[in-house]
């Protein structure tokens, strides 16, 4: 009887002895220059609501396997929730592309708002990252212009770090397209 109890105790202790896997965290940030300067918000536009598809609202990076299923990685996580990181990333990237700081809508409620919805953002089985997003302008009376962005970006190398970089690159392209559309619609003086 004592031998049995001793064996069970050893088994339980052996479970505690397993080394836990340490997940990797990836920070989603637009490339920023090292400078200190005052922000000059543009008067025409402001970043409104940025929403993401519900399947993206989880910490793990999403990868579509060859079987056609989506797997959220347990060991490779975003450093912060995407519903926080994506708006911040896009506002920064659009500001860089515009050459002017894009304020949040809470600071410029009277400006035309840029609303964005990410529909897909994950890795594909063929070694690429995909980003599908809709965005539209709202002048307070309703949506005026709406656009769709759908691009893929090949991974530079194997691994989740490359997937995170490819997704960041896609978000940057989205930001540049938004900025280009805004500039075409409202060209700067002298252009």
């Amino acid at each position: 009887m004592k031998a049995v109890a001793l064996t069970l105790s050893l088994l339980l202790l052996s479970a505690c002895a397993a080394q836990p896997a340490i997940p990797s965290h990836y920070l989603l940030r637009a490339p920023a220059t090292l400078e200190t300067r005052p922000l000059h918000f543009t008067e025409e536009y402001a970043l409104g609501n940025v929403t993401i598809a519900p399947y993206l609202d989880q910490p793990g990076l999403i990868l579509e396997t060859s079987e056609g299923t989506l797997r959220a990685a347990r060991g490779h996580l975003w450093a912060e929730p995407l519903f926080e990181a994506v708006p911040h990333f896009l506002r920064q990237a659009i500001s860089d592309a515009l050459g002017a700081d894009l304020p949040p809508a809470s600071l410029r409620p009277e400006s035309v708002q840029i609303n964005i919805r990410l529909d897909q953002m994950h890795g594909t089985p063929d070694g690429q990252a995909i980003l599908v997003a809709d965005w539209w302008l709202n002048d307070g009376a309703g949506a005026t212009n709406a656009f769709r962005f759908s691009r893929v970006e090949p991974l530079a190398r194997d691994g989740y770090a490359a997937l995170a970089e490819a997704q960041a690159a896609l978000l940057s392209k989205l930001a540049r397209q938004i900025a280009r559309q805004l500039q075409d619609a409202n060209p700067p003086p002298g252009a």
Partner: peptide
Amino acid sequence: LLLPPSPVPDPLPEAKK
């Protein structure tokens, strides 16, 4: 809780060859 499963490794994203 008593017998933790062995962790399933995440699938590895592979770049195009």
